[in-house]
């Protein structure tokens, strides 16, 4: 018994030795810069919380924050809506079709966000195929501004976010017994009633999980708003970059980065309070 215990302990020791280098790397490359950011946010240009005070006093900071939250929220809404439809269709499809659809959903991950943003600019621009078609069909008199504004940012971001929503929702939906919907029907529920009273409530954890994930990722978007917004839509990440690269206001930049991080952690904490995160992602 005793020797078994000691063996166990030494095995734990060996385990830690193997993990240690990785942990050190992580600490060095992740926590040290992070600590630096936090430190800078309360020391630059002089020690104190005056950088955080800007959250309440600076209209340009507030505007960037409001824009960020608004765009993230709208993106989340549309990504969930489209993602739900795709995930639902995937679940109902045959195994073969499901596999094809999954590849289709994953494909965009292999194309850089930069490329996709330029593609949208080309597609949605005033000279682009979409506007040309709209004008040619007489649906509009002159080209519609679909890009270099908030609409363009939203289109680009929803496009990037839908796969995340699909994958999260699909994982959740696959865990739902199809027999439940069949049972609801046999008990007298119409298709719609069975969906609304049985299926939809069971996907709420998936919706919350996907929604949080998409919202968090959307908060930190940089490339897409910068390119598709045409400089008119300033979200936090770009605002931070401007402070650090152009105006050299490190204190303000790091304060916003820290605020963003705290907001994200807050979202995750709230999520963990409502649902079992591990189960949601099928762990």
């Amino acid at each position: 018994m005793l020797s078994a215990n000691r063996q166990e302990a030494s095995r734990h020791g060996a385990y830690w030795l193997i993990v240690l280098p990785a942990l050190l790397m992580l600490a060095l490359l992740y926590f040290v810069p992070l600590g630096n950011v936090l430190l800078t946010s309360v020391t630059d240009p002089k020690p104190g919380l005056q950088n955080y005070g800007l959250l309440f006093t600076s209209t340009s900071v507030q505007k960037a924050l409001v824009t960020t939250v608004r765009i993230a929220a709208i993106t989340t809404f549309f990504a969930l809506l489209l993602g739900y439809v795709v995930a639902y269709a995937m679940r109902a499809a045959s195994t073969r079709t499901q596999r094809f659809m999954l590849v289709g959903v994953l494909l965009p991950f292999w194309i850089s966000v930069l490329v996709r943003s330029f593609a949208w600019i080309a597609l949605l621009g005033t000279q682009g195929p979409l506007n040309s078609a709209l004008v040619a069909w007489g649906l509009v008199d002159e080209p519609v501004a679909l890009v270099r504004n908030e609409t363009g940012v939203l289109i680009g971001m929803v496009h990037i976010m839908v796969p995340y929503a699909v994958l999260t929702l699909y994982a959740n939906m696959r865990g739902i017994d199809v027999g439940l919907v069949a049972a609801a029907r046999s008990l007298g529920a119409s298709r719609f009633q069975a969906f609304r009273m049985v299926f939809l409530p069971l996907t709420v954890p998936g919706l919350i999980g996907a929604g949080t994930l998409v919202f968090i990722l959307s908060l930190g978007f940089y490339v897409t708003p910068a390119l598709l917004g045409g400089g008119k839509v300033l979200m936090i990440a770009e605002y931070v970059a401007v402070q650090i690269n152009d105006t050299l206001r490190w204190g303000l930049g790091t304060m916003l980065a820290a605020t963003l991080m705290i907001a994200v952690l807050g979202c995750l904490w709230a999520l963990s309070r409502v649902i079992d995160v591990k189960r949601l992602f099928g762990a």
């Binding site: 017994d177 027999g179 439940l180 069949a182 049972a183 609801a184 009273m197 049985v198 409530p201 069971l202």
Partner: peptide, 9 residues
């Protein structure tokens, strides 16, 4: 049903 199919929600 064999697996009861009770609605967990």
């Amino acid at each position: 049903f064999q697996n009861y199919a009770l609605f967990p929600n």
